[in-house]
Design a binder for these strands. Structure first.
Lengths: 229, 229, 229, 229
DNA sequence: GATGAATGAGAGTTCATTCAT
DNA sequence: CATGAATGAACTCTCATTCAT
């Protein structure tokens, strides 16, 4: 009980502070001070700061991974030989992401952490996530491939990353963007509200017409976005 | 010359290290060591680490700001009373963004910095950028507003940031993504090629149908992306 | 034991160096180097250099404060309704001052510190001393008031500060003065000896005839000390 | 002119800052910044910080020394073979001290500096003052000796410094003390008024009965101020 | 099983001084 | 005659980690 208590208090405090300030800007003293546990407890229970960071992620990603595998299993059972539509895949992904922290933790924190994983990952975290949770994403990407047969593979690859950029950027800069939005439009947007706004944009992005890549890299005039200029 | 040399060497080194590791993870000793200047030189020339960070941004954003104002002036002169089409605005923005670092600096670094500005901004940087460069963005957003009268203001704000996320994420992680793309699809993509791929996606994202936000934050059933579920 | 040892060694060394050189001229490296403890130990045990300075004072002033309150309690019990004579008050004050460091620490160091408290106090120390030990001095001053009913309040205020100036100046410049005295008169004076020398001077100062303040601030000729010139 | 200007501005600023904060706590940057001169100017014009400190003192002590010598010359001419009375000597000293800063500088600053010279002197300053201005003080002390033949030499030395402490302490802390006095007693005291108050106190201090120094430093019973205890 | 004490490394910053121009 | 640039040394303080108990 005392141990569980300590470990949990550390994790609860760490995830909040990491989400607020980032990894480097959050010291173990910050965490143990706010959690009211001994400074040495982090190294005692987790071994190192890096291991603590990974543990914070694992507490979200382990259940996410499990649920998402289950959800895909169900989808495959339902659709059988049929192709699962893109929107259903996206919806399933989104629902799982939202479900995981709904129980005990904060969705906002989870999203900020995902953002940090990309923008602040010092290597060890990126590697850890890829090793631990790579398969579930691979499985998802394969289903997306079947759902978008009209897209060339390279095009699909880039579009998925365009969309990933939207999601990661939005959530990693969430606090800043929300501040501006609140100040300028008087609207407080919840994470759920943001996810709803993203839906049509993401779908439209994936289904946009193919680009005209003829003569690429040979034009001397820098006519970038519009064909005609 | 001596001064220019030292100041420039510090800025050149700092922007690369900041882009690679982030602000907190880059010490002044890292910077001055690599730049082969005295440790105290940073504080002598810039006053503090915070001021150095701002100076790194200013070196990109000052010329960007000037060029973009000029470009918009020209557009307004050309179109007169007419509304400037969205695609022309996006094309102008893209051209300016590409021009600035093209001369001496790296597009990738610029994009990484922009990403950091959102995800790592400790307040002082966010405030600085808003104060120094707010007007040019405001002007751009106002023109986008006229070009997309069908979008509610808040919706336009978020979609612009969704798109910004796509651009920054893609270009700031360019090297890694390019490696994967080359390995998996045998295609070497140039920046110009990538910009062409982005064009239809960005336009589609801005013109996607409006989301259904009814009952937001009150729904008990978590039906997120699809209306029907 | 280990802790007591480190804390005590830091305090012992700090008080000597502070007394010798002053606060600003004594670095934490000086202290920890001489005390043979780790540089970080000061911040670990005390939090900051300012807090260390305060702790050095507290180690003298806490017992002083307690003893002086007790001594005054005894005096009041002894004299009952009667007024406590001025000489007894001064004697009690002096005895308490001498007793405190007699046990373990150096009287000279204590005196130098008191001198520094006035001449070098950067604000935080003056505030700290006033907050922590103000009441005991207030109590003393009130008794002096009762012992010198013939003095107007303002006159008593100034004379107490005249005397304070004598004490503080002498002890804060102790080393310098002692050097000169030793060189010129071949006499090594102890602090105890000095206190004995001060006694008749202080008593005489407090009991000096009242000044003639008539026509003050109106004479044009600067005839300062003697009325006749 | 430019040079004179710079040197003067440095001296003017330095004396104020030194008096306010002490020597170690005042950096050359503080001084040159406030004086609006180049940082290197101090080293250029004075050679070092130590030399600047000495120059600050010289600007007060040089005219003081000259005037005081003149004043004593006049006294000796007037009194001839006769002994000059103590009160006349003190009056002369006081008048000279007040005259020097009266012209351009601040009495308070002068007094604070004198206080610092004793409490903060790191050696070089003490030596400098002794070398440069020792003779004038020696001459004064010799006259005091003739005026107080009943005092042992060492006793006279200490009493003069007791009195010096009163004067320096009072005038260097003048503003703070005056505030308290004004608040508590509703009296605004001028410098002239204070000097009048000091006169009987100083005279009484010099003429107080001799202390009983028997058994000094060997007494086991701590009977300090009163003979009887 | 848990913790107070301790530590080496390194952080940003400030310092008086020097030097080339 | 004067100064902007530069520097080596030292500053206080915080860091993640280790260890004896």
């Amino acid at each position: 009980m005392a141990q569980t208590d300590t470990v949990t208090r550390i994790l609860d405090t760490a995830e909040v502070l990491f989400a607020e300030r980032g990894f480097a800007e959050t010291s173990l003293r910050n965490i143990t001070g706010k959690a009211k546990v001994n400074l040495a407890a982090v190294n005692y229970h987790f071994g190192s700061k890096k291991a603590l960071i990974q543990a914070v992620f694992a507490r979200y990603l382990d259940p996410f991974s499990e649920r998402f595998h289950n959800a895909i299993d169900e989808l495959e059972a339902t659709y059988g030989e049929e192709v699962i539509p893109l929107e259903v895949l996206l919806e399933t992904m989104a629902r799982t992401v939202l479900e995981v922290p709904a129980e005990r933790h904060s969705l906002k924190v989870f999203m900020r952490l995902l953002g940090l994983a990309y923008s602040q990952a010092q290597g060890h975290l990126r590697r850890y996530i890829q090793e631990q949770y790579g398969t579930v994403f691979t499985r998802f990407v394969e289903l997306v491939r079947q759902a978008t047969p009209e897209l060339p593979d390279a095009e699909r690859f880039w579009r998925l990353h365009f969309v990933l950029g939207t999601v990661i950027f939005t959530f990693s800069g969430l606090d800043a963007l929300r501040d501006i939005s609140e100040k300028d439009y008087g609207e407080h947007v919840s994470v759920r509200n943001l996810v709803k706004r993203m839906r049509p944009v993401v779908v439209a992005a994936m289904q946009a017409p193919l680009p005209d890549l003829d003569g690429q890299d040979t034009d001397k005039t820098v006519t970038v976005l519009t064909g005609a200029g």
